[in-house]
Simulated assay, not measured.
Amino acid sequence: MTLTPEILDTDPQDTSGPRGPAPESRPASRAWNAVRLSSRHWGLALSVTVFTVALLWALVPGLFTSYDPIAIDNASKLKPPSADHWFGTDLLGRDLYARIVYGARASLLGASLAVAVAVVVGSLLGAVAGWFGGFVDSVVMRLIDVVLSIPGFLLAITIVVLYSATLGGAGLVPAAVAVGLTSAATFARLIRSEVLRVRASNYVEAAVTSGASTFTILRRHVIPNSLAPTVSLIAVQLGIAIIWIASLSFLGLGAQPPDPEWGLLVSDGRNYIATRGWLTLYPALTIVAVVLSTNHISRHLEKRTVR
């Protein structure tokens, strides 16, 4: 049997071998691969979608609602969900959906600040303990053990209350910093174990032999190569920070009225939970959806890191 040029999809004068798929089919092939990947990991795709929507709410809330989240409308007090107000209105006539959308900025910003504080403080403590060892390691790790022995949320409340009593005034930033300091111990333990591993590597020994300073070695070699395992932990801590900051706002120790924040919205509707449940239901479901999404993304990142 003789193979014709049509079967080989090649030019008889072309010796470069069979051609690949037609260029116009490649975008379709990539799209089909993306669809197949999403079907196999539909939970991850849903989680990423939910978190992306929440992130877009925080960045460009005006694209999702035309209502002012703090504008009072006495003629629309406590209206149930409808075509005009998807999630109903609160006791001051403010659109609840708009307040949830704009509240994403405070919730996600506060949680991101808390995680950033936890990563920075925890990385520094863990790096110092793992690098110097001996007495320094013992002191730092005993301090971390003390912090971990105290319930984290209780410690965060204590820090915020002390701040309010000494410096005056509660707010989102003090609440985020308190949550970050409370979570730093978890990162410190993980970073310390990674620093102990990285410290014995050849490139670190070469840097020490070349006469590089301790600060330079930690900044250029040790800490950057110790942060990879913290990626999945960051996603977990982001979800925890969202819950804790919302809880602090619920107790009046976080964001303050009239600014919208998810925990504050739940607090505003608690007196009407028996008669107008939408005031607490929709903000609470939003918190649950975003936190579950971050947890699912964290589990996927952890699997990829282990591999």
Rank of each mutant, 00 (worst) to 15 (best):
L56G: 07
G134Q: 11
P257R: 06
L46S: 15
L37S: 09
L301M: 12
L227T: 02
T216I: 04
I245R: 05
L279A: 06
V128K: 00
L172D: 10
H300M: 10
S249G: 12
H300V: 14
H41C: 02
S138G: 13
A284G: 15
D95P: 10
F51R: 09
G252P: 11
P12F: 09
Y163F: 15
R304S: 12
A165V: 14
G252Q: 08
G20E: 03
K79W: 05
T214L: 05
G269S: 01
S82G: 13
V195G: 00
V208M: 13
S82L: 14
F132N: 00
F153T: 08
W32H: 11
A284S: 14
A118M: 09
I70F: 07
T10D: 01
G93F: 05
F87R: 08
R304D: 11
V195M: 01
T166Q: 15
V117A: 05
L281P: 00
A75C: 02
T52F: 15
G130V: 00
A212I: 09
G20A: 06
G180D: 04
V198R: 01
L92W: 13
S249R: 04
G93V: 08
F64C: 12
V198M: 04
D268R: 10
P81M: 15
Y67L: 10
G263K: 04
V266S: 07
R199M: 00
L265H: 00
V121W: 11
G168N: 03
V208T: 09
T182P: 00
P81A: 13
L148H: 07
A212F: 10
K303S: 13
K79M: 12
L248V: 13
A28M: 04
G263L: 05
A98E: 09
P151F: 14
V306G: 14
P260E: 02
L155C: 05
P174H: 08
P18C: 06
D73S: 11
A22C: 01
V306D: 06
T158Q: 13
R189H: 05
T230E: 01
D68V: 11
A185K: 09
L167M: 14
F132H: 01
D68A: 13
E24M: 06
G133D: 01
E205T: 11
I243E: 10
V60Q: 12
S149N: 11
R40T: 13
D84E: 15
D95G: 08
G152W: 02
V139W: 09
L92V: 14
L172N: 03
I242W: 01
A289K: 02
E302C: 12
W42A: 14
L44N: 05
I223L: 13
R30G: 00
L56Q: 11
L143V: 14
T65H: 12
W32T: 07
A156I: 08
L265R: 00
A170E: 11
A284K: 04
R94T: 13
V48N: 03
L238M: 15
L113D: 08
V231P: 05
